[in-house]
Design a protein around this nucleic acid. Structure first.
Lengths: 336, 336
DNA sequence: TCCGTTTGCGCAATCGTTTGCGCTTTATAT
DNA sequence: ATATAAAGCGCAAACGATTGCGCAAACGGA
């Protein structure tokens, strides 16, 4: 039971490979192949369940209908949701996804993208894990590439990211409006772009409201439960206990919650908490957590739509390099 | 800046395409190509950053180093974790993953797998969403295929799944041991294999402990928050209020929690709860939820190891069709 | 000197498609 | 009737890599 090919069908029907190819790829009319022939070939092909060999097709046309996607950690709900959106959206547009988990490791990223290049993917969507855009820039010269979630500010690489600055600002502002004055932020990896922006937004808000007596401190160094726990314990047992904490991720949040429980502090009575990233579970923690939600759906949709546009534009001089920031939204729980 | 090919390198070095190919694929010594030539060609190739065109390679060798993976809903933490394990494990073994989200839709599944076949993937790992194995069986005749999470009991398709029967049994037994007698199970889709097995295990345990006065009811029909909520409200406000509830998924659990909160019932004092599937957040819900954890890592690892073994065995007569059930584990919280 | 081996490498077919070009045959115009 | 155009299809060259087979040169032994 060998697989059928254009050749086998051409033998079965008596027409040449070319004709069969044209008919089966829908170009029959375009090449003025008569309807009878078209119908006949189509029927034979269907009856033997012909499926074109996409590998051969790709080799010839240099189009794979495949998009490479790299994420730093697919096990993180934020990225798995993002991946889900992208996978579904690209499928709708006729593309398959090659997915790699780079595990926040730049070497893995380079490997993955090299493999994508070798496989002639039509485009690449990446959450970059490195700090320098050089490598990605050379790749982007040959293949449509779009960054998501993180970007480099010294390049023209296209990206779609959350406006983390606004997110940080909104969080601080919300706390201020709720009456808190002695704020604290527990951050993740300080060098990462989203972290820097959240920090910047937070600091700006604090500065803007300084006249109302708002002050703040910032601590922490990783997006982990443990980091949240350690910093929370330290701050909450210090002389100058903060009355509200802004955590930069859900993992950090969990650490803070653990700390508060251990210290017998109640949220929000003893200390308010506002988090970053959305998650269904946050509504079921007691109290439901107020958080700044990243617009995952929008990011995924914009990224895929744009990459596909870039792919299908071809070599047009008018290169599109969208650089998009999407504003996050505040979801109120009862933790402030 | 065109991409280098064997041809371009053969021109640069003056050697034939064949020689270049053999050298660059490491078969130089095997073909008795002299060391000087090998070194020279290698150096030239490196200097111009040659990367083989995997498409052409695949067409010729009929090997893509790609594995197709389908999951019903990548946004579900269980599946995203599973996918993460598989992605990382296959990468380690030299394979890339083509990922599709079938959205619990059989038509999508067929489409995805057809696309995998067209793309000549080396193997397929699938969480089947349909009820009949026929289609998958025909595919499996040509391509190594392994099922995960769900299986069909009337076929010889290889699979790696949680022993859901044991999981159901363990849950009921745990409740009994904690002293509960009037049990309730809220199930998901009754026709799905994991659901059936959990149900069967649960019922068996109840029967086994009937002499101790254990009795139980089963309700529900979908793996959704809403289903959990509805059934919990109905049962908890009924004459015969259950004293312990076994939910078949985390989503159902959330519905139950919502119901309990609304009815002002305390967990576990007023009603105990035990859930299925693990999730970091379950430790941060109040109280931490006792649950039966599916061995995601083991499943992912076994599935990839086996699919790779099947792939690399080739056409050996000794066809391997492992059918593996992995026992889940109980994680105790404070909800019982 | 002649022949058999070994060494070192190239020829050309092949994988399954796509597509520019051109070859027939039939229809239309003059 | 002849020229021209259109309709209907096939030839063969790509795409880039792999590989069975075989050729030539060098070497050794008799």
């Amino acid at each position: 039971m060998k697989k059928d090919t254009l050749l086998s069908i051409s033998e079965k029907t008596g027409f040449s490979i070319s004709t069969v190819s044209r008919v089966l790829s829908g170009k029959g009319p375009q090449y003025r192949i008569c309807q009878k022939t078209i119908d006949y070939i189509t029927e034979v092909a269907q009856s033997c369940n012909y499926m074109p060999n996409l590998i051969a097709q790709s080799l010839r046309t240099n189009k794979t209908n495949t998009i490479g996607l790299t994420v730093p950690n697919i096990d993180n709900p934020f990225f798995s949701t993002l991946a889900a959106v992208i996978i579904n959206q690209t499928k709708r547009l006729g593309y398959n996804i090659l997915l790699t988990d780079t595990m926040e490791n730049e070497e893995n990223e380079v490997q993955a993208i090299n493999s994508y290049v070798s496989r002639s993917v039509d485009g690449i969507i990446a959450v970059p894990v490195g700090s320098a855009p050089d490598y990605l820039e050379t790749v982007a010269r040959n293949i449509p590439l779009i960054l998501i979630d993180r970007y480099f500010d010294n390049t023209s690489l296209p990206y779609v990211c959350t406006d983390n600055y606004s997110g940080g600002y909104m969080a601080a502002e919300h706390l201020v409006n709720k009456g808190y004055r002695n704020l604290m932020a527990i951050q993740g990896v300080p060098t990462s772009m989203p972290n820097k922006e959240r920090h910047r937004g937070f600091a700006q808000a604090v500065a803007d409201y300084a006249e109302r007596g708002v002050r703040a401190r910032v601590a922490g160094d990783s997006f982990s439960v443990d980091n949240g726990y350690r910093e929370a314990v330290a701050a909450l047992t210090s002389e100058d206990k903060p009355d509200a904490i802004f955590v930069f991720s859900t993992t950090i949040l969990l650490g803070v919650i653990k700390a508060a429980k251990e210290l017998q502090l109640r949220i929000p009575e003893d200390v308010a908490v506002i988090s970053f990233d959305n998650n269904r579970f946050l509504d079921y923690i007691d109290p439901a957590i107020t958080r700044v939600e990243q617009p995952v759906n929008t990011i995924g949709k914009l990224a895929t739509d744009n990459i596909v546009r870039m792919i299908e534009k071809g070599d047009d001089k008018a290169i599109i390099t969208p650089q998009i920031l999407v504003r996050p939204a505040l979801i109120e729980g009862r933790s402030c």
